[in-house]
Simulated assay, not measured.
Amino acid sequence: MTPEPGTEIEAVTNEHLGRRLRELRLQSGMSLRALARELGISASAVSQIELGTMRPSVSRLIAFVSAIGVPLAAVFDTAEAVDAAAPAVDRFAIRRAHEVAPIRLSGGVTFRRLSPVPSPDVEFFESTYPPSSISNAHGHFLRHEGYEVGTVTQGELTIDFESEVVTLAEGDSITFSCGRPHIIGNRSETVTAVATWLIVHH
């Protein structure tokens, strides 16, 4: 059943996320073991993610899709939904807030796609970081393709780079190369942080 406008849509289940990741990996032609080597984790861990028994962190999810060569936005739709949503020439695309379920990752961090349909070379997201949450619970820095433009709309987010730390308050913006190793987190113990991100691929 489609939720009524104005109601909060449930996050996709771990099983649904896992199935979609497996579907994307198979489409890419990469084997489970090859992906595990690329991610630096065991084949069993990749299998658990694809089965929905292990919820990936933000960093792990981005590393996963980067390794198989698909944009993060691809995780939100099935291939059929992507084809059906593609706008015809000279038309526009619209998707209501209640029509796209967010993805809840490790630590309770959620990602919600803001672009109504996949857009070539550009991804537009909203991320929500609960108190004391981080993009990578293992403490490993993330790097991927393109560059990011982000604006904090609620609370504060901290971005750790290898040689410096930047704290962004509500209304602050940042842009940086995704190839620069980074970890994003919310150091507040009481306030949820929300930000919008534009990821531009080269």
Rank of each mutant, 00 (worst) to 15 (best):
residue 120 P to G: 03
residue 80 E to H: 12
residue 79 A to Y: 08
residue 114 L to Q: 12
residue 97 A to V: 14
residue 114 L to P: 01
residue 83 D to N: 09
residue 122 V to A: 03
residue 95 R to H: 15
residue 79 A to L: 10
residue 83 D to F: 10
residue 77 D to K: 02
residue 83 D to T: 11
residue 94 I to D: 12
residue 96 R to C: 09
residue 89 V to S: 07
residue 66 S to L: 04
residue 116 P to M: 06
residue 89 V to F: 04
residue 112 R to T: 07
residue 94 I to F: 13
residue 105 L to F: 01
residue 92 F to G: 10
residue 84 A to R: 14
residue 97 A to M: 11
residue 122 V to C: 05
residue 86 A to F: 12
residue 93 A to D: 08
residue 79 A to I: 10
residue 98 H to I: 10
residue 80 E to M: 09
residue 72 L to T: 02
residue 121 D to W: 12
residue 70 V to M: 01
residue 83 D to R: 15
residue 71 P to F: 00
residue 93 A to T: 08
residue 98 H to C: 11
residue 107 G to T: 01
residue 85 A to F: 00
residue 76 F to M: 09
residue 123 E to K: 04
residue 72 L to K: 02
residue 89 V to N: 09
residue 76 F to R: 03
residue 106 S to V: 12
residue 113 R to G: 09
residue 72 L to Y: 00
residue 117 V to E: 04
residue 64 F to R: 02
residue 93 A to R: 06
residue 76 F to I: 09
residue 99 E to A: 14
residue 117 V to D: 05
residue 122 V to P: 01
residue 116 P to R: 05
residue 88 A to N: 10
residue 105 L to R: 01
residue 68 I to C: 08
residue 96 R to L: 13
residue 101 A to R: 08
residue 99 E to M: 12
residue 84 A to K: 15
residue 84 A to M: 13
residue 101 A to N: 08
residue 105 L to V: 03
residue 67 A to P: 02
residue 83 D to W: 08
residue 106 S to N: 13
residue 108 G to Q: 00
residue 87 P to Y: 05
residue 81 A to T: 10
residue 103 I to F: 05
residue 117 V to K: 02
residue 78 T to P: 09
residue 110 T to D: 01
residue 73 A to D: 06
residue 120 P to T: 02
residue 81 A to H: 08
residue 97 A to I: 09
residue 94 I to W: 12
residue 72 L to A: 08
residue 102 P to R: 04
residue 90 D to L: 12
residue 78 T to F: 10
residue 123 E to H: 04
residue 99 E to T: 12
residue 109 V to K: 01
residue 81 A to P: 09
residue 100 V to L: 15
residue 87 P to C: 03
residue 121 D to N: 11
residue 109 V to Y: 00
residue 105 L to I: 03
residue 94 I to E: 11
residue 91 R to V: 07
residue 81 A to Q: 15
residue 121 D to L: 15
residue 100 V to A: 09
residue 100 V to W: 06
residue 121 D to F: 13
residue 69 G to V: 02
residue 100 V to Y: 06
residue 84 A to E: 14
residue 103 I to C: 07
residue 74 A to D: 11
residue 100 V to M: 14
residue 93 A to S: 10
residue 80 E to N: 11
residue 101 A to M: 05
residue 106 S to Q: 13
residue 119 S to E: 15
residue 78 T to Y: 11
residue 71 P to R: 04
residue 65 V to T: 02
residue 89 V to H: 07
residue 84 A to V: 10
residue 98 H to T: 12
residue 106 S to K: 10
residue 87 P to E: 02
residue 76 F to W: 08
residue 83 D to A: 11
residue 108 G to P: 00
residue 123 E to P: 07
residue 120 P to I: 05
residue 82 V to A: 01
residue 64 F to D: 01
residue 122 V to L: 12
residue 97 A to L: 10
residue 110 T to G: 00
residue 123 E to D: 11
residue 118 P to Q: 12
residue 123 E to I: 08
residue 100 V to P: 04
